[in-house]
Nucleic acid binder design. Structure first.
Lengths: 187, 187
DNA sequence: CGACCGATGTCAGCCGCTGTCATCACAATA
DNA sequence: TATTGTGATGACAGCGGCTGACATCGGTCG
C-alpha cells in the first residue's frame, strides 16, 4: 500500500460535491472539503485550480468528444447539422440525468459558478468553431454555426433537466434545432 | 462645497480603467485604485460589488435600452428581426469604437473578466427573452431568438473591433444576421 | 440649536489562493 | 544493499479580495 490513500483527486471531488449540495457553495470552505477528503487545503489546490473547477473538470473530456464528433461528421453534412449531430450523439453517451440535475442545481444557485459554466460553454463554442474551420467552413459561418449549436444545446438541456420532461436529450436537441431553424427562417 | 470631492464613483471607474490598462487587471490592487481616486479600499467596495464590476457597471443601462427597443418594435416584426433591430439601433447610439477597443483589450487579457462579460451577455439574453415573451412569442422561440441574437451581436462586435474594419456596427450586425440565416437554412 | 442622515474612514478578520520548504514512501540505479 | 532521486503531500507564511462593525463629521431638517 502506498503512503497515501489512492485517488485523492476523486475523493476531493466527491467531498466537494457533497458539501456544496449540503450547505451551498459559498458556505463551504476549501479547508472543509480537504478535511472531509482526508487531505489539506494546499493539496486541494494542487488538484484543482480553484474552488469552482472541481465541478467542471470533466468538461475537458466532453469537449474532446464534441470536437471529434464534428470532425468525423460526413463531408455532406451542413455546418449546423454537423454540430447538432455532434451534440446529439455525445449528449446521448455522456449524461446521467439525476447527476446532471443535482450538479445543475448547485451551479444555478451561485453566480460565480454560472460564470464558470458560461466560460466553459464559450470554450466549447471556440473548439467547435475550430473543428468546423477544419472542415473547410468559412470563419463567419463556422462561428455562427457553433454559437447557434450551443444555443440549441442550452435550450434543450434546460428542458431535459426540467421536471416532468419525458423526452431524451437527443430528441430535445433535434426539436430545439428545428425551432431555431423556424425562428431564423420565418422573417 | 461638500465634505468630499464629488463623483467618487466616477473617479474610481477612471482610476480603475487607467490602472487596468497600464499594468493589467491582476497586477492592480483595489487599494491602488482607491488611492489614485483619493479614497479608501473600503469605499471602492461600497460603489462596486467587486473588482471586476467597475468595468461592467454601464451594462445595466445598455440592457434597458435593448429591452425597450425590442418591446417597441412593430408588431409585424418577426422575433429574430425584432432582436436584430434592437441590437442595431442601440449599438448605433451607444458605442464608441476606441473606448470599446481599449476596454475589450483589458477584458480579453483576463479570464475572470471574460467570465463576467459572458454572464452579462447571458443576462442580456434573458432580458431579451422576457421582452419577446411580452410580445406573445412562445417560450422556446423566444429563448432561441434571444440567444441567436446575442450570437449575431458577438460575431459582429468582434469584427467591428478588429483592425482594418471599415463598416459600422449596424451594418456588421445585418451581415452577421444574414450569415446566421444562411447557415441555419442551408441544410 | 439639536437630532438625524449619508458618505467616508478605520480596523479587524475570514477565506481563496500561492510560494516555499520539509517530509517520506517508493523506484531506479549503482 | 546503499544511494539517489522523484513525486505526492504536509506545514507555514503571506497577499489580496471582500465584509462587518463602528467612528467621524459635514449637511439638512425640524
Amino acid at each position: 500500500m502506498g503512503r497515501w490513500q489512492p485517488n485523492a483527486r476523486g475523493r476531493l471531488a466527491q467531498a466537494a460535491l457533497e458539501l456544496y449540495a449540503e450547505r451551498g457553495f459559498e458556505q463551504t470552505t476549501v479547508a472543509e472539503i480537504a478535511k472531509r477528503a482526508g487531505l489539506t487545503e494546499r493539496t486541494f489546490f494542487r488538484h484543482y485550480a480553484d474552488k469552482r473547477e472541481v465541478l467542471f473538470a470533466g468538461g475537458a473530456v466532453l469537449e474532446d468528444l464534441f470536437v471529434r464528433a464534428v470532425t468525423d461528421a460526413p463531408d455532406s453534412a451542413a455546418p449546423i447539422d454537423a454540430v447538432a449531430a455532434a451534440l446529439e450523439t455525445t449528449g446521448t453517451v455522456l449524461l446521467d440525468r439525476e447527476f446532471s440535475r443535482q450538479r445543475q442545481a448547485i451551479i444555478d444557485a451561485n453566480a460565480e459558478l454560472r460564470e464558470r459554466e458560461l466560460i466553459k460553454l464559450s470554450s466549447l463554442a471556440s473548439a467547435l468553431t475550430g473543428a468546423l474551420r477544419g472542415r473547410g467552413v468559412p470563419d463567419l459561418a463556422a462561428s455562427l454555426a457553433a454559437e447557434a449549436g450551443i444555443a440549441v444545446f442550452k435550450v434543450a438541456f434546460v428542458r431535459w433537466i426540467g421536471e416532468g420532461e419525458q423526452k431524451d436529450l437527443p430528441q430535445l436537441i433535434r426539436e430545439s434545432l428545428d425551432g431555431l431553424k423556424a425562428v431564423t427562417t420565418g422573417s
